[in-house]
Structure formats: C-alpha cells, structure tokens
C-alpha cells in the first residue's frame, strides 16, 4: 500500500525545452495577472524609503522642486533666457529624466537585488519588472506635481496638444519595461554592466538637452545632430512638447515608436532564451 508511485509513472513527455516563445509569453501573462503583488511591492518600495520620516513620500516632490528651482534660476541666467520660459522647460526635462534614468539604473539590478525573493518564492520574472516600472511611475507621478505648480506660477499657455502627454507616458512606461527586462537579464549574467551603466548615465545626462535647449546648439553655430542622435532626446521631447504647449514633432514620435518596438523584440528574444537561466545566475 505504501508502494512508490514510480510504478504509475506516465511515459516521458517529448523533450520540451525551457526556451520557447510560449513560456516567455506565459511569464509575461502570469506576471501581469499578479497585479496586486507588484503594485503592492512597488508602493512598498517607496514607503520603505520614507519610513519613519514625517512627511514621507512628499520628500520626492520637495527635492525635485528644489533642484528644478535652483537649476532653473542658474541656467536661465547662464543662457540669458527668460526664467518663465526656461524653468518649465527644465522642470519637465528633469521629471522625465528621473523616470528614464530610474528605469535604466534600477533595471540593471532588478534581478540581482531580488535574489533572496527569487530563490524563496517562485514567481514570473515579469513580476519584478512590473514592480520596478510601477515604482518609477509612482515616483514620476510625485514629481509631476512640480509641473502643475510651475504651470500655475508661470500661467503657461496650454493647447489641445496636452492630451498627447497620455500616449507619451504610455510609450515611456512600455519602454521602461523592455529596458529593465533586457538590461536586467544581461546584467545578471555580466556583473560589469551595472557599474558601467551607472557611470554612463551621468555622461548621458549632460549630453541630453535637459538643462540646456537643443536650439542653443544652432544659435551658437553648432549642429543639432549632437542632440538628435541621442535617442533619449526624442523620449524627452514627446512629453515635453505637449506639456509645454508646443507643436508636436512627428519625427520624435516615429523614433520613439521604433525604439519601443525594436527594444521589445530584443527583450522578448532574450527573455525566451535566458528566462530560465536568471535564477541560476543571481
């Protein structure tokens, strides 16, 4: 009666590889379904940082407000620009940059930092990605308050194009997800990537028109190409234009759309091939 159940063993299934598209998409589908889990963890991450502080996550908004005000005053003077024009420009750029750099730098460590969890509790990889994107989105939302403050102070003119901010934010989140997925998997295997990316981000920040306006390049007799070859420029522009009431530039949207599609294709390929290896690598 206590016979081992090996007797009723069914015949071995056809060799099923762990490297299939079906398993990769299942991972994403299963992760998306666990919305309560990643939403909770993402919010937890933020509360965590401000635990025992009196005003809590409001510090995110305050620190962004201080940075934007100080740098706005400094750079509008440096470039001889009108404060009412340059400060909103810089504010939106900074808010956007916060999200982008957050997704990239945290993305490289998304699995490395969750090693404990990954070895304790089985969960789809996409749960960790969604948690990160959700956390960055919440931070972004906190920072966006600054935009509305700036809007009120400078009484900026807003046109109908402001609705384009919504698809811009969606594209930004979609890109954040593939970046975290791709960089996360590759960086778990090659541990030089997080420090390399970390130091590159500093450089990219200065190369991207955030505190400076790309038009200055032209005015000073330089070439706009320095700015336009930078993919992040286009990401920042698609949100900055609608929020500042400027005209929509189709090129920016095409570039961002193309990067999102190519990036996802690449990230899915890496997910398909190395999904099952990540727990071995962390």
């Amino acid at each position: 009666m206590q016979a081992t159940s090996t007797v009723e063993k069914p015949p071995a299934p056809p060799e099923s590889s762990s490297r299939t598209w079906r398993k990769a998409f299942n991972d994403i589908a299963a992760g998306t379904q666990q919305r309560q889990l990643w939403a909770h963890l993402g919010w937890q991450d933020i509360k965590q940082r401000y635990r025992r502080s009196v005003i809590g996550p409001l510090w995110i908004t305050i620190s962004m407000g201080m940075t934007v005000t100080a740098l706005g005053i400094l750079y509008s003077n440096l470039f001889g620009k009108n404060l009412g024009e340059h400060l909103p420009y810089l504010a939106v750029g900074f808010i956007m940059w916060g999200f982008i750099s957050g997704c990239i730098t945290d993305g490289t460590e998304v699995f490395i930092q969750n090693e404990g969890l990954m070895k304790q509790l089985p969960a789809p990889l996409s749960v960790h990605i969604l948690r990160l994107v959700w956390r960055q989105t919440l931070l972004f939302a906190h920072n966006l308050v600054i935009y509305f403050v700036v809007l009120a102070i400078f009484l900026m003119p807003i046109s109908w194009t402001v609705v384009m901010a919504i698809p811009a934010i969606v594209l930004m989140m979609a890109s954040g997800a593939w970046v975290a997925l791709l960089f996360g998997i590759v960086a778990t295997r090659f541990r030089d990537i997080p420090p390399v990316v970390g130091s590159l981000m500093q450089l990219i920040f200065f190369m991207t028109p955030i505190v400076w306006d790309a038009e200055i390049l032209e005015q000073k007799g330089g070439s706009m190409f320095i700015a336009k070859l930078n993919p992040l420029y286009h990401y920042i522009e698609i949100l900055r234009d609608p929020l500042l009431g400027e005209d929509i530039v189709l090129t920016n949207w095409i570039v961002v759309g193309a990067i999102t599609i190519v990036g996802w294709a690449l990230a899915l390929l890496v997910l398909r091939n190395y999904r099952a290896r990540v727990t071995y690598w962390v």
């Binding site: 889990l37 937890q44 965590q48 404990g116 070895k119 969960a123």
Partner: peptide
C-alpha cells in the same frame, strides 16, 4: 531571506500570500 525586515509582520504575511497566488 525573502522577507522584508523593515516592514511589519502583517505586511510580510500579505506579501508572502500574494506571492503564493492569493489576493
């Protein structure tokens, strides 16, 4: 490991439960 030392026992219970497929 796998439990967050900074958050309360209640919250850890909820998180572990969510990981195990509960809501």
């Amino acid at each position: 490991v796998g439990m967050d030392p900074e958050i309360s026992g209640y919250e850890n219970i909820v998180i572990r439960g969510l990981f195990l497929g509960m809501n």
